[in-house]
Write a protein that binds this DNA or RNA. Structure first.
Lengths: 308, 308
DNA sequence: GCGTGGCATTAAGCCCCTCAA
DNA sequence: TTGAGGGGCTTAATGCCACGC
């Protein structure tokens, strides 16, 4: 569910935005709402990207702090900081990390380490970490959904420990300077995210103790993760080709066909399209010295209104 | 020229980035370097988009500050500020403005107001604003490139006045609160941008006075601006469809064909592809009650390495 | 033209406390 | 119990300008 629907018609008015603004909104809103990246993380990521742009200009402009500053409206002193930041990063062979992955890395691994650390051993009770009578146990287990991974029910503190582990692991990959300390606020955020993603579920035991049940073996299904990768790759390719196309560069072809299609013909049409593309590619595929590799990317979908 | 080339092989190493990070880099770097948006403006734009995401969640979560805060890792107090910001925006019927246009609005209009305010009247000298002898004038004019718009050569202060006008005009469209005051630094930035975009050219008159010559009738050619609009629209469509595709929604088809093609066959192949698509669309186009509007978008380009 | 130093403001983080429905 | 609302805190980044070379 990526199309975020808000029934408030008022928003339609506010969305009186330009095309480029809408584009940015679509990206950012999905990064935050759909993929679950932290608010600050997204801004940080863009800020790093922007600093990198400044760094590139600095190199291109022959190491001129002031000129670079003027070109992008950044204080020369700040340019200097940025430059040294990237210089040392390059020297240390560090890698640039903005978001790292489409979904927050510290959430992706959650199910995995839960299963790893708290797998259910032969004859062990799922509620081992809680002091429950046999009857209480049966009542609680009766409320479990189907097909949950075979592992222990956790206490709040266990969940927090897992989150802390993941956070620390994710942070350890970063170079010292730009680490975020673990905090209660962060843990709480992660907990809410995991609940919202239905990776785990909260079960009230008593008035002030909760148990947590793992629902899925993955934060998001492997198939979905693979498709997200493909999405990013396709979109990146589109980006680059379109940028080239704007500048009228050779070797880029862009087209769009709009049509009305009857529901019952759709299946047939799509199949024919697929075969047609394949046949075309086969026909012109020739491996010889003078040939170049090209790719044809296509995408078909419904005509949509501009909603977020 | 969007592919920014830096010869430093070192950078290849730093570009040890994930797909999503590369994607963000591509977007942000082009916004800043190619389109010339200010460093701070881009970060601001994303920040507004992120705040909007928070606002949407707030509405969806039944006006729950706390919960919204946890979901995105934002302080409840900050959420409240954000919410009231958007609430008042909506009440006043204001519109959300991130970047506004693909290129900075205060630069796009530059040529236009120059031509408008300083067009060359019958028999008037291009160097009217400077105290030059006839011979000096001839020497300077001899150095002009071909086909420059017919308007006066300007002094530094005139250029700055034009920039200020543009800035004020751009700001007046925004709602009071989020305006940026005009400053020397900003003017200097704009000047550098205009020079870099070859919209105008600096001509040294004496040691410490310069003249400025308008080179183009537009900040960027109209055709290019139209293509940029198309680019953004195409990319936005791709975005939305791909997001849907990731979630396995119906009615989306996505494909890619890679082939090696001989240079001499390319032209023929592209033409055939174009006709083929058209024929396919015509064949299945039926206007009836049960039919839905779909669009087929395709893009062909060279296989590329991952460089920025 | 270039680098650097001083200075204001804001935002993004953290935490802790109280009150009312 | 949970949301609202208050307070107080650090750090860092985005801006301005002006000075000296």
């Amino acid at each position: 569910m990526v199309q975020i629907r808000v029934n408030h018609d008022k928003l339609a008015k506010a969305l009186n935005v330009s095309d480029i603004d809408f584009f940015i909104l679509l990206l950012v809103i999905n990064l935050i709402k759909t993929f679950g990246h932290r608010y600050g993380k997204v801004i940080d990521a863009v800020s790093v990207a922007a600093k990198f742009a400044v760094y590139l200009t600095y190199l291109e402009e022959g190491n001129n702090l002031r000129r670079t500053g003027f070109l992008h409206h950044v204080e020369p002193r700040r340019v200097k900081e940025i430059v040294s930041e990237f210089d040392t990063l390059l020297e240390n062979g560090g890698s640039l990390c903005l978001l790292g992955s489409v979904e927050p890395s510290y959430l992706i691994g959650f199910s995995y380490i839960w299963i790893e650390k708290y797998s259910l051993k032969e004859g062990e009770s799922v509620t081992r970490l809680f002091n429950l009578t046999e009857s209480e146990r049966i009542i609680i287990e009766a409320g479990f959904p189907e097909n949950t991974p075979k592992c222990l029910l956790l206490r709040e503190c266990d969940v927090e420990a897992l989150i802390k582990d993941l956070h620390d692991k994710a942070q350890s990959l970063l170079h010292e300077s730009k680490r975020t300390a673990f905090s209660e606020a962060l843990a709480e955020h992660a907990k809410y995210r995991l609940l919202a993603a239905e990776t785990m579920q909260e079960i009230k035991i008593t008035k002030d103790t909760s148990a947590y049940l793992l629902l899925k073996k993955d934060y998001s299904p492997k198939g979905r993760q693979a498709r997200m990768q493909t999405m990013i790759q396709d979109l990146t390719r589109s980006f680059r080709w379109m940028y080239s196309w704007v500048d009228g560069e050779d070797g880029i072809m862009r087209g769009i066909e709009t049509l009305e299609i009857a529901e019952e013909q759709k299946e047939e049409a799509l199949q024919e399209l697929d075969q047609m593309m394949r046949a075309w590619a086969d026909k012109y595929h020739t491996e010889s010295d003078g040939s170049k590799i090209v790719a044809l990317q296509f995408l078909l979908g419904p005509h949509q209104e501009m909603t977020i």
